[in-house]
């Protein structure tokens, strides 16, 4: 899933303080699971903002909505009939949702309420970590199912570097060395010999480096 983190309330206030009618829009997908922008967080943020504006003596109307998905035309359409009531939307969806909202409601200011962090998973309750950087050419089959692009601090395809210490990465004792994980799993799979295969120079044109990406599937187009 896409993992996001709530923006600090001060930053949010700074973005929306000049508007009178505000819609806070949550999303029922990833940001709900990572507890950053679901229905619950929309409610908490709305209360906090109401309190803030009341203390400031400002009259600001704040409505709440949580859409099934903000990265989807169909669900975004659900608010078309009322969008004109608002001066601005504060979207708690990931960056994709915020942008889809802005594209769809072209004349309504839209602000992000979360920082979109990465694609990852919950390791345990309250701890999320990165697993994929969408390089567009997945090599997990060669790296024992562990991604060195997103999980090695140097994106080494032929790691580990000389800084790997006791299973941890040179940049932090709290971070597993991806190459230690790869080696442990290669061993488990009885494939340690594969370690000596040199991974060729990667084609990064399918990654961010190649410019904004698009997938076009003729077979599913209408």
């Amino acid at each position: 899933m896409i993992v996001a983190e709530k923006k600090p309330i001060e930053e949010i206030i700074d973005q929306v303080k000049d508007f009178q009618k505000l819609l806070i829009a949550g999303c029922n997908e990833c940001v709900t699971v990572c507890e950053a922008g679901g229905k619950k967080e929309v409610g908490i943020l709305a209360s906090a903002l109401r309190m803030y504006f009341m203390n400031e003596g400002k009259k600001v109307e704040i409505d709440e909505v949580t859409l099934e998905r903000q990265c989807d035309h169909e669900y975004l359409e659900e608010i078309r009939d009322r969008i004109d009531k608002y001066d601005a939307v504060l979207s708690l969806a990931c960056g994709v949702g915020v942008q889809f909202m802005a594209e769809k409601y072209f004349s309504t200011p839209v602000f992000p309420g979360v920082n979109t962090c990465f694609m990852g998973a919950a390791e345990e309750r309250g701890v999320w970590s990165e697993r994929c950087q969408a390089c567009g050419q997945c090599i997990l089959g060669e790296t024992a199912g562990i991604c060195p692009i997103s999980r090695c601090a140097k994106r080494l395809l032929n790691g580990p570097c000389g800084g790997s210490t006791k299973g941890k990465c040179e940049i932090s004792k709290d971070l597993d060395c991806a190459w230690q994980l790869i080696l442990d799993r290669l061993k488990e799979l009885d494939r340690l010999d594969d370690y000596e295969k040199i991974m060729p120079i990667k084609d990064w044109s399918t990654e961010r480096a190649g410019g904004p990406r698009k997938v076009v599937r003729e077979d599913v187009r209408l």
Binding site: N158, P160, C161, G162, G163, S164, T165, K166, G167, C177, Q180, L183, Y195, E196, I198
Partner: peptide, 14 residues
């Protein structure tokens, strides 16, 4: 001296 030691020679070979 980096870890894991067991791949330090294979890494040289590589």
């Amino acid at each position: 001296f980096a870890d894991p030691f067991e791949i330090r020679v294979p890494r040289l070979a590589k």
